[in-house]
Amino acid sequence: MMQPGFADPVLDAQSAFRAVLEALSHPGRIIPIAPAPIPPAPLSPAMGALALALCDADTPVWQDGGAQAADWLRFHTGAPFAEAPAAMFLFATGRPPALSTLNLGTDEVPQDGATLVLNVASLKAQGTLRLRGPGIKDEVSLGVEGLPENFLAERAALRPHFPRGLDIVFCCGAQIAALPRTTEVI
């Protein structure tokens, strides 16, 4: 049977959006999403909340969660599926496609750069990632376990292309932390 989406589509979408807004405004800060839906595995609750809050018929989506996840996303958001390079939102439960192959936008239209939503094994407020950039007072640290191999190097390789780039949201359970394209991992 199809798992439900938000209990209250209007207010739950609003609070999920505010969580993402806060996460992107304060890169590296761990923000809980409550209430979050329970999407079919391997989609995480946070990932499900982002999809329901932000995706619709206007947003081509890529996902690797299998048929049940695809059905759930299609039913609740109405979003069309696309190949990774054409997707506005990517929901990666496993290894994401090579970052340089995704839509980075153009210098004139950098807002076309995709949003990559990625499941990770754990998120901790203190950790090995030292972050700097807009939204961060001096420097913060974030602990992320379960990042794909070479992920940070691939991301760092996109930095010179700014304002083109990818915005990344890590999900763990119902928690998120974001790395917008402006954030530098030092």
Binding site: V10, Q14, S25, T59, Q111, G113, P163, D167
Partner: peptide
């Protein structure tokens, strides 16, 4: 009226624009 007047599809569109605006500070979306 829907909560806060706008319909949900419009809010989602504006919310996506706001998120990208935050990601590229100072750029007009």
């Amino acid at each position: 009226y829907n909560f806060a007047y706008l319909d949900e599809a419009t809010k989602r569109m504006i919310r996506r624009a706001i998120l990208k605006a935050v990601a590229v500070p100072g750029h007009q979306v």
